[in-house]
Design a protein around this nucleic acid. Structure first.
Lengths: 205, 205
DNA sequence: GCCATGTTGGCAGTCACTGCCAACTAGACA
DNA sequence: TGTCTAGTTGGCAGTGACTGCCAACATGGC
Protein backbone atom coordinates (compact mmCIF):
# COMPACT_ATOMS: atom_id res chain seq x y z
CA UNK A 1 0.00 0.00 0.00
CA UNK A 2 2.93 2.26 0.63
CA UNK A 3 4.27 4.01 -2.40
CA UNK A 4 7.61 2.44 -3.23
CA UNK A 5 9.35 5.78 -3.53
CA UNK A 6 7.92 7.07 -0.25
CA UNK A 7 10.88 7.64 2.06
CA UNK A 8 10.78 5.32 5.02
CA UNK A 9 9.80 7.45 7.96
CA UNK A 10 12.93 8.17 9.87
CA UNK A 11 13.18 6.57 13.27
CA UNK A 12 13.71 9.97 14.86
CA UNK A 13 10.54 11.38 13.38
CA UNK A 14 8.53 8.38 14.47
CA UNK A 15 9.89 8.57 18.03
CA UNK A 16 9.18 12.24 18.11
CA UNK A 17 5.62 11.69 17.00
CA UNK A 18 5.11 8.83 19.44
CA UNK A 19 6.40 10.95 22.28
CA UNK A 20 4.05 13.75 21.29
CA UNK A 21 1.14 11.33 21.33
CA UNK A 22 2.19 10.14 24.79
CA UNK A 23 2.30 13.69 26.09
CA UNK A 24 -1.01 14.51 24.53
CA UNK A 25 -2.72 11.47 26.03
CA UNK A 26 -1.18 12.10 29.44
CA UNK A 27 -2.32 15.71 29.39
CA UNK A 28 -5.84 14.76 28.38
CA UNK A 29 -6.12 12.17 31.15
CA UNK A 30 -4.73 14.46 33.81
CA UNK A 31 -6.71 17.51 32.73
CA UNK A 32 -9.90 15.45 32.91
CA UNK A 33 -9.00 14.02 36.28
CA UNK A 34 -7.64 17.09 38.07
CA UNK A 35 -8.41 20.06 35.90
CA UNK A 36 -5.89 22.12 33.97
CA UNK A 37 -4.96 24.29 36.93
CA UNK A 38 -4.66 21.27 39.22
CA UNK A 39 -2.21 19.55 36.89
CA UNK A 40 1.48 20.42 36.76
CA UNK A 41 3.74 20.08 33.77
CA UNK A 42 6.01 17.83 35.81
CA UNK A 43 3.11 15.41 36.27
CA UNK A 44 2.28 15.33 32.58
CA UNK A 45 5.92 14.89 31.66
CA UNK A 46 6.38 12.10 34.21
CA UNK A 47 3.29 10.29 32.98
CA UNK A 48 4.50 10.61 29.39
CA UNK A 49 7.96 9.41 30.42
CA UNK A 50 9.91 12.48 29.38
CA UNK A 51 11.68 15.30 31.16
CA UNK A 52 9.85 18.60 31.67
CA UNK A 53 12.40 20.17 29.34
CA UNK A 54 11.41 17.83 26.54
CA UNK A 55 7.76 18.40 27.34
CA UNK A 56 8.13 22.09 26.60
CA UNK A 57 10.07 21.44 23.43
CA UNK A 58 7.28 19.31 22.03
CA UNK A 59 4.20 20.86 23.59
CA UNK A 60 5.13 24.52 23.72
CA UNK A 61 2.84 25.32 26.63
CA UNK A 62 0.91 23.33 29.21
CA UNK A 63 -2.44 24.09 27.61
CA UNK A 64 -1.21 23.29 24.12
CA UNK A 65 -0.21 19.80 25.23
CA UNK A 66 -3.71 18.54 24.62
CA UNK A 67 -3.74 19.92 21.07
CA UNK A 68 -0.47 18.47 19.78
CA UNK A 69 -0.89 17.04 16.33
CA UNK A 70 1.40 15.71 13.67
CA UNK A 71 0.96 18.70 11.39
CA UNK A 72 -0.64 16.53 8.73
CA UNK A 73 -3.75 18.72 8.56
CA UNK A 74 -1.72 21.91 8.37
CA UNK A 75 0.38 20.36 5.61
CA UNK A 76 -2.76 19.39 3.73
CA UNK A 77 -4.02 22.96 3.98
CA UNK A 78 -0.73 24.43 2.82
CA UNK A 79 -0.52 21.81 0.14
CA UNK A 80 -3.62 23.06 -1.67
CA UNK A 81 -2.44 23.58 -5.21
CA UNK A 82 -3.33 24.07 -8.85
CA UNK A 83 -6.51 25.98 -8.18
CA UNK A 84 -5.61 29.08 -10.15
CA UNK A 85 -6.29 32.52 -8.77
CA UNK A 86 -10.00 31.88 -8.29
CA UNK A 87 -11.59 32.15 -4.87
CA UNK A 88 -14.34 29.68 -5.71
CA UNK A 89 -11.85 27.08 -6.78
CA UNK A 90 -9.87 27.72 -3.63
CA UNK A 91 -12.96 27.33 -1.47
CA UNK A 92 -13.73 24.10 -3.21
CA UNK A 93 -10.20 22.84 -2.62
CA UNK A 94 -10.28 23.82 1.04
CA UNK A 95 -13.62 22.09 1.46
CA UNK A 96 -11.98 18.99 0.08
CA UNK A 97 -9.21 19.16 2.67
CA UNK A 98 -11.71 19.61 5.49
CA UNK A 99 -13.90 16.82 4.11
CA UNK A 100 -10.89 14.53 3.98
CA UNK A 101 -10.24 15.28 7.63
CA UNK A 102 -13.82 14.41 8.51
CA UNK A 103 -13.53 11.25 6.47
CA UNK A 104 -10.60 10.18 8.61
CA UNK A 105 -12.66 10.87 11.73
CA UNK A 106 -15.53 8.84 10.33
CA UNK A 107 -13.15 5.94 9.88
CA UNK A 108 -11.56 6.15 13.31
CA UNK A 109 -13.77 5.61 16.36
CA UNK A 110 -10.86 6.24 18.71
CA UNK A 111 -10.11 9.61 17.13
CA UNK A 112 -13.79 10.56 17.38
CA UNK A 113 -13.84 9.67 21.06
CA UNK A 114 -10.69 11.70 21.61
CA UNK A 115 -12.21 14.65 19.83
CA UNK A 116 -15.29 14.52 22.04
CA UNK A 117 -13.16 14.37 25.19
CA UNK A 118 -11.14 17.41 24.17
CA UNK A 119 -14.34 19.19 23.23
CA UNK A 120 -15.89 18.52 26.63
CA UNK A 121 -12.71 19.67 28.31
CA UNK A 122 -12.66 22.93 26.37
CA UNK A 123 -16.28 23.55 27.32
CA UNK A 124 -15.44 23.98 30.99
CA UNK A 125 -11.84 25.07 30.85
CA UNK A 126 -11.67 28.63 29.51
CA UNK A 127 -7.89 28.50 29.46
CA UNK A 128 -8.08 25.66 26.95
CA UNK A 129 -10.54 27.58 24.84
CA UNK A 130 -8.12 30.49 24.81
CA UNK A 131 -5.31 28.17 23.76
CA UNK A 132 -7.42 26.59 21.02
CA UNK A 133 -8.36 29.97 19.57
CA UNK A 134 -4.78 31.15 19.81
CA UNK A 135 -3.55 28.08 17.96
CA UNK A 136 -6.12 28.42 15.23
CA UNK A 137 -5.43 32.11 14.64
CA UNK A 138 -1.67 31.67 14.75
CA UNK A 139 -1.84 28.88 12.24
CA UNK A 140 -4.11 30.90 9.94
CA UNK A 141 -1.71 33.84 10.18
CA UNK A 142 1.08 31.64 8.91
CA UNK A 143 -0.98 29.75 6.36
CA UNK A 144 -2.91 32.56 4.69
CA UNK A 145 -0.09 34.77 3.38
CA UNK A 146 1.88 31.73 2.27
CA UNK A 147 -1.00 30.30 0.28
CA UNK A 148 -2.07 33.69 -1.04
CA UNK A 149 1.44 34.26 -2.34
CA UNK A 150 1.64 30.87 -3.96
CA UNK A 151 -1.67 30.83 -5.80
CA UNK A 152 -1.81 34.53 -6.57
CA UNK A 153 -4.78 35.70 -4.53
CA UNK A 154 -4.93 38.56 -2.04
CA UNK A 155 -4.91 37.63 1.65
CA UNK A 156 -8.46 38.80 2.06
CA UNK A 157 -9.82 36.28 -0.45
CA UNK A 158 -7.89 33.44 1.11
CA UNK A 159 -9.17 34.44 4.54
CA UNK A 160 -12.70 34.58 3.23
CA UNK A 161 -12.51 31.13 1.71
CA UNK A 162 -10.87 29.74 4.82
CA UNK A 163 -13.50 31.46 6.94
CA UNK A 164 -16.34 29.81 5.05
CA UNK A 165 -14.73 26.38 4.97
CA UNK A 166 -13.88 26.71 8.66
CA UNK A 167 -17.39 27.78 9.55
CA UNK A 168 -18.78 24.76 7.73
CA UNK A 169 -16.31 22.52 9.51
CA UNK A 170 -17.14 23.90 12.95
CA UNK A 171 -20.87 23.81 12.29
CA UNK A 172 -20.58 20.22 11.14
CA UNK A 173 -18.67 19.17 14.24
CA UNK A 174 -21.01 21.12 16.54
CA UNK A 175 -24.07 19.52 15.04
CA UNK A 176 -22.46 16.09 15.04
CA UNK A 177 -21.51 16.42 18.72
CA UNK A 178 -25.02 17.59 19.55
CA UNK A 179 -26.57 14.60 17.77
CA UNK A 180 -24.02 12.33 19.44
CA UNK A 181 -25.07 13.56 22.88
CA UNK A 182 -28.66 12.76 21.93
CA UNK A 183 -27.57 9.25 21.08
CA UNK A 184 -27.82 9.74 17.32
CA UNK A 185 -25.07 8.67 14.96
CA UNK A 186 -24.34 10.50 11.75
CA UNK A 187 -21.55 10.36 9.25
CA UNK A 188 -19.46 13.51 9.51
CA UNK A 189 -18.88 13.60 5.79
CA UNK A 190 -22.62 13.44 5.08
CA UNK A 191 -23.33 16.07 7.66
CA UNK A 192 -20.62 18.23 6.15
CA UNK A 193 -22.27 17.98 2.73
CA UNK A 194 -25.60 19.02 4.28
CA UNK A 195 -24.05 21.98 6.03
CA UNK A 196 -22.26 23.03 2.86
CA UNK A 197 -25.48 22.84 0.86
CA UNK A 198 -27.47 24.74 3.46
CA UNK A 199 -24.83 27.43 3.73
CA UNK A 200 -24.51 27.78 -0.01
CA UNK A 201 -28.25 28.24 -0.32
CA UNK A 202 -28.37 30.73 2.58
CA UNK A 203 -25.58 32.73 0.97
CA UNK A 204 -27.63 32.83 -2.22
CA UNK A 205 -24.90 31.42 -4.42
CA UNK B 1 -27.95 66.17 36.82
CA UNK B 2 -27.26 63.53 39.47
CA UNK B 3 -30.34 61.93 40.90
CA UNK B 4 -30.71 63.21 44.47
CA UNK B 5 -31.13 59.74 45.88
CA UNK B 6 -28.16 58.35 44.00
CA UNK B 7 -25.61 57.40 46.64
CA UNK B 8 -22.48 59.50 46.37
CA UNK B 9 -19.85 57.23 44.96
CA UNK B 10 -17.71 56.11 47.80
CA UNK B 11 -14.16 57.43 47.79
CA UNK B 12 -12.83 53.88 47.92
CA UNK B 13 -14.76 52.82 44.85
CA UNK B 14 -13.63 55.87 42.93
CA UNK B 15 -9.98 55.31 43.88
CA UNK B 16 -10.28 51.70 42.90
CA UNK B 17 -11.72 52.61 39.54
CA UNK B 18 -9.11 55.29 38.93
CA UNK B 19 -6.34 52.85 39.77
CA UNK B 20 -7.81 50.32 37.35
CA UNK B 21 -7.86 52.94 34.63
CA UNK B 22 -4.22 53.78 35.36
CA UNK B 23 -3.22 50.14 35.11
CA UNK B 24 -5.18 49.69 31.92
CA UNK B 25 -3.60 52.73 30.28
CA UNK B 26 -0.13 51.73 31.39
CA UNK B 27 -0.59 48.22 30.02
CA UNK B 28 -1.87 49.51 26.70
CA UNK B 29 1.08 51.89 26.30
CA UNK B 30 3.67 49.31 27.24
CA UNK B 31 2.14 46.52 25.19
CA UNK B 32 2.15 48.78 22.16
CA UNK B 33 5.72 49.89 22.79
CA UNK B 34 7.37 46.59 23.74
CA UNK B 35 4.88 43.86 23.01
CA UNK B 36 3.07 41.77 25.57
CA UNK B 37 5.92 39.34 26.02
CA UNK B 38 8.46 42.13 26.29
CA UNK B 39 6.54 43.83 29.08
CA UNK B 40 6.73 42.67 32.68
CA UNK B 41 4.01 43.07 35.27
CA UNK B 42 6.44 44.99 37.45
CA UNK B 43 6.80 47.58 34.70
CA UNK B 44 3.06 48.00 34.26
CA UNK B 45 2.57 48.24 38.01
CA UNK B 46 5.37 50.77 38.39
CA UNK B 47 3.99 52.91 35.58
CA UNK B 48 0.53 52.77 37.14
CA UNK B 49 2.00 53.63 40.53
CA UNK B 50 0.92 50.52 42.40
CA UNK B 51 2.64 47.44 43.75
CA UNK B 52 2.66 44.26 41.66
CA UNK B 53 0.50 42.68 44.34
CA UNK B 54 -2.19 45.29 43.80
CA UNK B 55 -1.81 44.96 40.07
CA UNK B 56 -2.83 41.32 40.27
CA UNK B 57 -5.73 42.07 42.58
CA UNK B 58 -7.21 44.50 40.10
CA UNK B 59 -6.11 43.06 36.76
CA UNK B 60 -6.19 39.34 37.42
CA UNK B 61 -3.60 38.50 34.79
CA UNK B 62 -1.07 40.42 32.75
CA UNK B 63 -3.05 40.03 29.53
CA UNK B 64 -6.33 41.00 31.18
CA UNK B 65 -4.85 44.32 32.29
CA UNK B 66 -5.69 45.86 28.96
CA UNK B 67 -9.33 44.78 29.23
CA UNK B 68 -10.15 46.08 32.70
CA UNK B 69 -13.50 47.80 32.73
CA UNK B 70 -15.81 49.15 35.38
CA UNK B 71 -18.37 46.36 34.99
CA UNK B 72 -20.98 48.84 33.80
CA UNK B 73 -21.65 46.92 30.60
CA UNK B 74 -21.89 43.60 32.43
CA UNK B 75 -24.28 45.19 34.90
CA UNK B 76 -26.40 46.53 32.05
CA UNK B 77 -26.56 43.05 30.54
CA UNK B 78 -27.49 41.42 33.83
CA UNK B 79 -29.94 44.22 34.51
CA UNK B 80 -32.14 43.35 31.52
CA UNK B 81 -35.57 43.01 33.05
CA UNK B 82 -39.29 42.85 32.49
CA UNK B 83 -39.12 41.12 29.14
CA UNK B 84 -41.24 38.12 30.05
CA UNK B 85 -40.20 34.63 29.01
CA UNK B 86 -40.04 35.51 25.33
CA UNK B 87 -36.82 35.09 23.39
CA UNK B 88 -37.73 37.80 20.88
CA UNK B 89 -38.35 40.30 23.64
CA UNK B 90 -35.05 39.28 25.24
CA UNK B 91 -33.19 39.74 21.97
CA UNK B 92 -34.75 43.14 21.60
CA UNK B 93 -33.71 44.11 25.12
CA UNK B 94 -30.16 42.86 24.58
CA UNK B 95 -29.94 44.78 21.33
CA UNK B 96 -30.90 47.85 23.31
CA UNK B 97 -28.06 47.28 25.77
CA UNK B 98 -25.55 46.82 22.97
CA UNK B 99 -26.92 49.86 21.13
CA UNK B 100 -26.55 51.93 24.28
CA UNK B 101 -22.93 50.86 24.49
CA UNK B 102 -22.35 51.93 20.90
CA UNK B 103 -24.10 55.21 21.61
CA UNK B 104 -21.59 55.88 24.37
CA UNK B 105 -18.76 55.12 21.95
CA UNK B 106 -20.27 57.46 19.38
CA UNK B 107 -20.23 60.21 21.98
CA UNK B 108 -16.68 59.63 23.18
CA UNK B 109 -13.86 60.08 20.69
CA UNK B 110 -11.28 59.09 23.29
CA UNK B 111 -13.05 55.80 23.99
CA UNK B 112 -13.23 55.10 20.25
CA UNK B 113 -9.52 55.72 19.87
CA UNK B 114 -8.82 53.43 22.80
CA UNK B 115 -11.00 50.74 21.28
CA UNK B 116 -9.08 50.93 18.01
CA UNK B 117 -5.75 50.70 19.79
CA UNK B 118 -6.81 47.60 21.70
CA UNK B 119 -8.20 46.14 18.53
CA UNK B 120 -4.93 46.66 16.67
CA UNK B 121 -3.03 45.16 19.57
CA UNK B 122 -5.22 42.05 19.60
CA UNK B 123 -4.67 41.65 15.87
CA UNK B 124 -0.98 40.91 16.29
CA UNK B 125 -0.86 39.53 19.80
CA UNK B 126 -2.45 36.09 19.86
CA UNK B 127 -2.11 35.94 23.64
CA UNK B 128 -4.41 38.95 23.91
CA UNK B 129 -6.90 37.37 21.56
CA UNK B 130 -6.90 34.31 23.77
CA UNK B 131 -7.47 36.48 26.82
CA UNK B 132 -10.29 38.39 25.12
CA UNK B 133 -12.07 35.22 24.12
CA UNK B 134 -11.59 33.75 27.57
CA UNK B 135 -13.05 36.85 29.19
CA UNK B 136 -16.05 36.89 26.91
CA UNK B 137 -16.85 33.23 27.41
CA UNK B 138 -16.33 33.38 31.16
CA UNK B 139 -18.60 36.37 31.43
CA UNK B 140 -21.29 34.68 29.31
CA UNK B 141 -21.04 31.57 31.48
CA UNK B 142 -21.84 33.68 34.51
CA UNK B 143 -24.41 35.89 32.86
CA UNK B 144 -26.51 33.36 30.95
CA UNK B 145 -27.70 31.07 33.75
CA UNK B 146 -28.34 34.02 36.01
CA UNK B 147 -30.49 35.81 33.45
CA UNK B 148 -32.20 32.61 32.31
CA UNK B 149 -33.18 31.88 35.89
CA UNK B 150 -34.47 35.36 36.49
CA UNK B 151 -36.64 35.78 33.41
CA UNK B 152 -37.72 32.18 33.10
CA UNK B 153 -36.07 31.07 29.87
CA UNK B 154 -33.86 28.05 29.29
CA UNK B 155 -30.13 28.68 28.99
CA UNK B 156 -30.16 27.77 25.34
CA UNK B 157 -32.59 30.54 24.41
CA UNK B 158 -30.61 33.12 26.33
CA UNK B 159 -27.42 31.96 24.65
CA UNK B 160 -29.10 32.17 21.27
CA UNK B 161 -30.31 35.70 21.84
CA UNK B 162 -26.94 36.73 23.21
CA UNK B 163 -25.24 35.03 20.27
CA UNK B 164 -27.28 37.03 17.77
CA UNK B 165 -26.91 40.33 19.59
CA UNK B 166 -23.19 39.68 20.03
CA UNK B 167 -22.73 38.80 16.38
CA UNK B 168 -24.45 42.04 15.38
CA UNK B 169 -22.25 43.96 17.79
CA UNK B 170 -19.04 42.40 16.52
CA UNK B 171 -20.06 42.81 12.90
CA UNK B 172 -20.88 46.44 13.55
CA UNK B 173 -17.53 47.12 15.17
CA UNK B 174 -15.63 45.20 12.48
CA UNK B 175 -17.31 47.13 9.72
CA UNK B 176 -16.86 50.42 11.53
CA UNK B 177 -13.16 49.76 12.06
CA UNK B 178 -12.78 48.79 8.42
CA UNK B 179 -14.46 52.00 7.28
CA UNK B 180 -12.38 53.95 9.78
CA UNK B 181 -9.16 52.56 8.29
CA UNK B 182 -10.39 53.71 4.89
CA UNK B 183 -10.86 57.17 6.30
CA UNK B 184 -14.64 56.96 6.40
CA UNK B 185 -16.62 57.99 9.44
CA UNK B 186 -19.88 56.36 10.35
CA UNK B 187 -22.07 56.46 13.42
CA UNK B 188 -21.86 53.17 15.25
CA UNK B 189 -25.50 53.30 16.21
CA UNK B 190 -26.57 53.79 12.59
CA UNK B 191 -24.28 51.04 11.43
CA UNK B 192 -25.68 48.78 14.14
CA UNK B 193 -29.19 49.41 12.87
CA UNK B 194 -28.09 48.50 9.34
CA UNK B 195 -26.42 45.32 10.51
CA UNK B 196 -29.48 44.38 12.54
CA UNK B 197 -31.75 44.94 9.55
CA UNK B 198 -29.54 43.00 7.19
CA UNK B 199 -29.19 40.12 9.60
CA UNK B 200 -32.91 40.01 10.29
CA UNK B 201 -33.63 39.85 6.58
CA UNK B 202 -30.96 37.19 6.02
CA UNK B 203 -32.42 35.11 8.83
CA UNK B 204 -35.79 35.37 7.14
CA UNK B 205 -37.62 36.73 10.16
C1' DG C 1 34.03 3.20 12.41
C1' DC C 2 33.35 8.41 12.11
C1' DC C 3 31.39 12.74 11.74
C1' DA C 4 27.46 16.06 11.34
C1' DT C 5 23.21 16.78 13.06
C1' DG C 6 19.33 16.31 15.91
C1' DT C 7 17.48 14.92 20.53
C1' DT C 8 17.43 14.61 25.45
C1' DG C 9 17.80 15.94 30.25
C1' DG C 10 19.62 18.77 33.87
C1' DC C 11 20.48 23.29 35.79
C1' DA C 12 19.96 27.87 36.72
C1' DG C 13 17.35 31.82 35.98
C1' DT C 14 13.20 34.81 34.92
C1' DC C 15 8.67 35.93 35.55
C1' DA C 16 3.56 35.26 36.29
C1' DC C 17 0.76 34.53 39.98
C1' DT C 18 -0.94 33.43 45.01
C1' DG C 19 -1.52 33.08 50.14
C1' DC C 20 -0.49 35.31 54.15
C1' DC C 21 0.30 39.02 57.20
C1' DA C 22 0.99 43.61 58.99
C1' DA C 23 0.12 48.58 58.26
C1' DC C 24 -3.10 51.75 56.87
C1' DT C 25 -7.53 54.12 55.90
C1' DA C 26 -12.44 55.02 54.59
C1' DG C 27 -16.79 54.87 56.55
C1' DA C 28 -20.17 53.91 60.21
C1' DC C 29 -21.59 54.74 64.67
C1' DA C 30 -21.56 56.11 69.42
C1' DT D 1 -14.56 63.58 68.01
C1' DG D 2 -12.94 59.03 69.18
C1' DT D 3 -13.43 54.31 68.02
C1' DC D 4 -14.39 50.19 65.82
C1' DT D 5 -15.04 47.50 61.53
C1' DA D 6 -14.01 46.24 57.22
C1' DG D 7 -11.76 46.96 52.96
C1' DT D 8 -7.25 48.18 50.70
C1' DT D 9 -2.39 48.10 50.17
C1' DG D 10 2.28 46.37 49.88
C1' DG D 11 5.87 43.16 51.12
C1' DC D 12 7.46 38.48 51.44
C1' DA D 13 7.92 33.91 50.51
C1' DG D 14 6.55 30.19 47.70
C1' DT D 15 4.89 27.63 43.52
C1' DG D 16 5.01 26.63 38.95
C1' DA D 17 5.36 27.84 33.87
C1' DC D 18 8.79 28.56 30.69
C1' DT D 19 13.69 29.44 28.54
C1' DG D 20 18.72 29.48 27.44
C1' DC D 21 22.61 26.91 27.84
C1' DC D 22 25.39 22.92 27.99
C1' DA D 23 26.89 18.23 28.14
C1' DA D 24 25.65 13.43 26.95
C1' DC D 25 23.78 10.64 23.65
C1' DA D 26 21.49 8.65 19.37
C1' DT D 27 20.75 8.66 14.48
C1' DG D 28 21.70 8.69 9.71
C1' DG D 29 24.99 9.51 6.02
C1' DC D 30 29.72 8.61 4.70
Amino acid sequence: MTAPDAPVEALRDRRRRETSIEICAAALDLFEAKGVHGTTVDEIAARAGVSPRTFFRLAGTKEDAVFIDDGRFADALSGVADVGDDIRALLSALRGVFARELELLDADAQARERYLRVRRLIAHEPSLLGAAVRREVTSADRFVPELAERIGLVDFDVRTALGIAGLEMRTTLDEWARLHDQGQTRSLVDLHRDVERRLTRAAGA
